[in-house]
């Protein structure tokens, strides 16, 4: 049932939920044709890469967790990072976002070398991430969670904090922005709740909304749909597409192939630390290297739409 033929075919409706399903037409895809000339092979060059990893290796003792020769991530597109458990996806994510340091190799963000740059500095430069285990600040309200993510806050200086006139004005602006973003995520009514009182899915939403507060260029989502019910999955997918339509580059790790097919413009497949395949979501599942990587366990899921 192709509802739009410009970039990817819809998979079967995730979990049969489908309530509030967001159509592609709601959020136009600026990256629809970005991959037209890309070759579907590991390390394939992109027309306008925003994130580049070259020769990145990470060892834990004798184990090589990540060994990526080259990988480029296209600006403004949604790139999925998939692979079986233990493929090194999250480790690679940590290396890209500065939460871990590679033993070898370099990472470039928007042309600048960011290897070994501290994660908070990367966040300031516009690269923000979420975590597989959601990290909301439980004893802060939803609104405070949002306001925390405002950048360059004068009131975060200990001395200026003592003199409210120096930061009250900015605080109001940040609060207005936070409410605007919460509104986009349909969470305004929860603004005074403790974040710790939210459900798992709501926490994922809050984490995404909070990331948006930093005005990111790149947003990295580590398993954004894990443990989220199907109806909320659709809403989260809509938000991810909206981010793309606003020009934000999205990189995400995901296990759910329906989700991957639904929203990604490009898929990178990792197995045992290396990139084994790259390609469009519609075709990467048929790649023998990918089927091999999954050792047949997810064979049916990956190729479901071809055999059905």
């Amino acid at each position: 049932m192709p509802e739009s033929d410009d970039f990817v075919e819809f998979g079967k409706t995730a979990g049969g939920g489908g309530a509030g399903r967001v159509r592609d037409t709601d959020w136009p895809n600026p990256a629809a044709h970005a991959f037209d000339d890309c070759i579907e092979e590991p390390g394939s060059p992109k027309p306008d890469p925003i994130l580049v990893a070259t020769g990145v290796q990470r060892h834990f003792g004798g184990l090589t967790a990540v060994d990526v020769a080259t990988m480029q991530i296209q600006r403004g597109a949604i790139t999925a990072l998939i692979g079986p458990n233990g493929a090194g996806k999250t480790t690679f994510f940590n290396l890209l976002s500065g939460f871990d340091r590679p033993d070898q190799g370099e990472v470039y963000f928007d042309g600048a070398r960011i290897t070994n740059v501290a994660p908070h500095l990367l966040a300031k430069r516009g690269m923000v991430r979420t975590f597989q285990l959601t990290k909301v600040l439980a004893k802060l309200s939803v609104l405070e969670n949002m306001k925390l993510a405002g950048q360059l806050q004068a009131g975060e200086s200990m001395w200026k904090a003592l003199l409210p006139p120096l930061w009250k004005h900015q605080e109001k602006a940040i609060e207005a922005k936070a409410l605007e973003i919460l509104d986009e995520f349909n969470m305004v009514h929860m603004q005074h709740e403790f974040a710790g009182a939210l459900s798992g899915g709501q926490r994922k939403l809050l984490e995404m909304a909070r990331s948006m507060m930093t005005d990111p260029q790149v947003i990295m989502l580590d398993e954004p749909m894990a443990g989220v019910n199907p109806a909320l999955t659709q809403s989260l997918l809509g938000h991810v597409k909206r981010m793309r339509s606003q020009g934000i580059t999205v990189v995400f790790v995901e296990h759910d192939m329906d989700v991957v097919r639904d929203i990604s413009d490009w898929v990178v497949v990792m197995a045992e630390g290396i990139v084994v395949a790259e390609g469009r979501a519609s075709s990467v599942g048929a790649n023998p290297a990918v089927i091999d990587a999954y050792l047949g366990t997810s064979h049916a899921a990956l190729t479901g739409e071809h055999t059905a």
Binding site: V136, L137, S211, T214
Partner: peptide
């Protein structure tokens, strides 16, 4: 307070 709750979350927010 955010450091108290989760250092890495605060770090990811640029602190």
């Amino acid at each position: 307070k955010s450091v108290r709750e989760d250092e890495n979350a605060a770090r990811a927010m640029g602190k």
